[in-house]
């Protein structure tokens, strides 16, 4: 118990020592020299925006665009990780970039097929609102 308290006190002291360089020193350093985590945060935000778009929009074409946004966020993750692995000197560091190429290929194929489906759907149902396409709902 006493040991724990001492450990906590020492931890607090160290935290205070770190803060001596200025209240937001670590944050400033992060802004000045963005590293892997900043890439990942931007990718995560893009991903969430895409998910929100898929879940909330009614226009099926905009939903497809949100899916492209999601795939792009995944690509950004791959590239950032590839860069990090290159810096650590990993032998297979380029795997991320290769995977990004395949993601782009799949995204292109998905867009072509998806938009073909949208056109066929529009011809038959005369609507692109997803909440009006409820043929399989019971």
């Amino acid at each position: 118990m006493v040991n724990n308290i001492f450990a906590a006190l020492i931890f607090l002291q160290e935290a205070g020592a770190e803060q001596a360089a200025g209240p937001f020193a670590a944050m400033k350093e992060g802004v000045k020299h963005p590293d892997l985590s900043k890439f990942l945060v931007i990718a995560a935000l893009l991903f969430i925006i895409g998910v929100a778009g898929v879940l909330t929009r009614r226009n099926i074409i905009v939903i497809f665009m949100s899916i492209e946004l999601i795939l792009n966020a995944a690509n950004l993750n791959f590239i950032a990780m590839s860069r990090y692995l290159q810096q650590t000197g990993s032998a297979n560091a380029l795997a991320g970039q290769i995977f990004a190429v395949f993601v782009i290929v799949v995204a292109a194929a998905e867009a072509a097929i998806g938009l073909g489906i949208v056109i066929a759907l529009y011809r038959n149902k005369e609507t692109i609102w997803v909440d009006e396409i409820d043929l399989m709902k019971w």
């Binding site: 931007i42 935000l45 893009l46 925006i49 895409g50 929100a52 778009g53 909330t56 929009r57 905009v62 665009m65 949100s66 946004l69």
Partner: peptide, 8 residues
């Protein structure tokens, strides 16, 4: 990020 938000 902002362009993505505006897309949606």
């Amino acid at each position: 990020i902002f362009a993505g938000l505006l897309t949606v």
